[in-house]
Amino acid sequence: MDALKSAGRALIRSPSLAKQSWGGGGRHRKLPENWTDTRETLLEGMLFSLKYLGMTLVEQPKGEELSAAAIKRIVATAKASGKKLQKVTLKVSPRGIILTDNLTNQLIENVSIYRISYCTADKMHDKVFAYIAQSQHNQSLECHAFLCTKRKMAQAVTLTVAQAFKVAFEFWQVSKEEKEKRDKASQEGGDVLGARQDCTPPLKSLVATGNLLDLEETAKAPLSTVSANTTNMDEVPRPQALSGSSVVWELDDGLDEAFSRLAQSRTNPQVLDTGLTAQDMHYAQCLSPVDWDKPDSSGTEQDDLFSF
C-alpha cells in the first residue's frame, strides 16, 4: 500500500511530472533526481522514447528462454528487412502500455495491464526491452520488442512496467475491499429498513384510530445511509488515497477476473515476472533518469539497429 499512497501523494503535489519523457535525446524537461521519484509518476504514465523492432507469436506467457528466442527472431526479421526502425513513445501506467508513433502521434497499440504476463531486458541484446501480452483480438500470446538507447534504459522500462503492474494490483485490492464494505453496509441498511417496515402498523389501523404518522421519526431512520450505499452501487469504487486528485481509476471486468485468478494461483500475485536478476534490479533502481541518457562506457552510441 505504500507504493499506492506515495504515488497518489506525488501526483497530487505535481501532476505535471508524469508528462516528462525519457530517452528522447535531450528533449525532456528537468528530471527527478532518483528512481523513487520517477516511480511516483506512474499514475498518469511515464513516457519512454524507443524504437519498435516488431512482434512475434509465442506459445507460453512467460520465460527467459522463451523471450530470448522470440527477441532473436524479431531482431533477425528487422535486420533482414533493412528498413529504419519506427520511433515510438511507450506510455507506461497502472492501466497498461500505450504505444504511439512519434511522427504521426497515431495510436499503435493499447495493452491493458492485466494482459501483460512478462517483461524483460534481454541478456543477449542488452539494449532490447520486450514484453509478452495476450492479444486483445484473440487468445494468442505476442512478444513485442523495442530497441532502447542503452542497457540502462531497457532495464528502466522493464522495472517501470513491473512497478505499474504492482500498483494496478494494489488498486484492485483496495477497490475489492471498498466494494465488500459497501455491499455489507448496503445489506445491513436493508435489514434495518426491513425491520422498521415489519414493526410499522398498517396504514388502515392508523387511520381508524385517528393517529398521525410521525414524519420526524421517519426522517431519523437510516434511510439516507441505505440510499447512499445503493444509489451508486454500479459505480466502481476508487482508492481513497486518490481522493481529490485528477486521476480516475476504473476497474473493468477483465482486470477484476484476471487479478482474482492471480490472487488464487500465485504466492506473490502482485509481482510481474521479469528477466532481471536481483543485481540488475538493484543497479537500475539506483540510477537517476539522467543516467539513462548518458552514453555507455563501451563506446559511442549508434542510432541504428545494427549497432548491437
Rank of each mutant, 00 (worst) to 15 (best):
D101T: 06
T218N: 08
K123E: 10
T36P: 09
M281R: 02
C119E: 04
Q134F: 05
R115I: 07
S243V: 09
K166T: 05
K294R: 00
K62Y: 07
N232A: 07
E170G: 11
V161N: 02
M55W: 04
S14I: 00
L215A: 05
P201I: 02
A241G: 09
R196Q: 08
R13G: 09
N138D: 14
G54W: 04
T225I: 06
L141T: 14
Q279V: 04
R266D: 00
R29C: 15
E40M: 12
K83N: 15
K51P: 04
K19F: 02
N34L: 13
A10G: 08
L272S: 01
G189T: 06
K150R: 07
V161I: 07
L305I: 15
A69K: 08
G190H: 05
L141R: 09
F306A: 00
Q60W: 12
F169S: 01
L203Y: 06
E257C: 07
D304N: 14
E216Q: 07
D234E: 13
F48V: 09
K84Q: 09
Q197F: 08
Q302K: 09
G194Y: 00
G189K: 00
A3H: 07
S298Y: 13
N110T: 01
T218K: 08
H125S: 03
P269S: 01
N110C: 13
G275V: 03
S205K: 05
E109Y: 06
A70N: 04
R95K: 08
F306H: 01
D234P: 02
S93T: 12
T38E: 12
S243A: 05
H28N: 08
P201R: 04
T230K: 09
L11W: 04
P202M: 06
D198W: 05
E235H: 03
E178Y: 05
E109K: 04
V207W: 05
S243C: 08
G26D: 12
H144D: 14
G8I: 12
A80I: 13
S175M: 01
G26V: 06
T225D: 05
A219R: 02
Q60A: 05
Q173K: 01
Q86I: 08
E235F: 04
N211V: 12
W249H: 06
Q279I: 05
V247G: 11
R182C: 10
K150Y: 04
S140R: 06
Q197W: 11
A80E: 14
A121Q: 10
W22M: 12
K204N: 10
E250Q: 08
L107M: 08
R182A: 13
G189I: 08
K294H: 04
D293T: 07
T77E: 08
S49D: 04
G189N: 05
E188A: 09
G8W: 00
S307D: 06
E250F: 03
G63N: 05
P94C: 15
S186A: 08
A228Q: 04
D183S: 05
L203G: 02
K72H: 11
M281V: 10
L103P: 15
V248D: 05
T231G: 11
D214M: 05
S307Y: 01
W22S: 12
L147P: 14
L215W: 14
L107S: 07
N211G: 09
V207L: 12
V75S: 14
Q270L: 03
A168Y: 01
V111L: 14
E170Y: 10
S265V: 02
R151N: 02
N138W: 14
F306I: 05
A69M: 03
A221Q: 06
Q155F: 13
G275W: 06
N229R: 04
L141Q: 09
D214P: 08
K72T: 04
S112L: 01
L147R: 15
S245G: 12
T38M: 11
L206T: 08
T300Y: 01
P61W: 11
A241N: 00
K152M: 11
D214K: 13
Q139S: 14
G24S: 11
H282K: 09
Q173P: 01
I98L: 02
A185H: 03
S298P: 03
P32Y: 10
K220M: 04
P289L: 01
C286V: 07
L262S: 01
R73F: 10
A162G: 10
R182V: 09
T209Y: 05
T267A: 03
K152A: 12
S117H: 09
L212I: 04
L193F: 01
V157S: 12
G96C: 10
D191N: 05
L57C: 14
N268G: 02
S16N: 08
E33M: 07
H28K: 09
R182F: 10
L4T: 03
A263W: 12
A208P: 03
A164V: 01
A168R: 13
T300N: 00
T89F: 10
M46N: 08
D198A: 05
K19P: 12
L50D: 15
S245W: 01
L53M: 11
I74S: 09
K204Q: 05
M281H: 08
S227N: 01
D273L: 02
T38R: 15
Q197G: 00
E64F: 14
L276R: 11
L287R: 01
E178N: 00
E40R: 09
L213H: 15
Q173D: 03
K150I: 03
T149N: 03
Q279C: 00
E65R: 10
A133P: 05
Q60K: 14
T77D: 02
C286A: 07
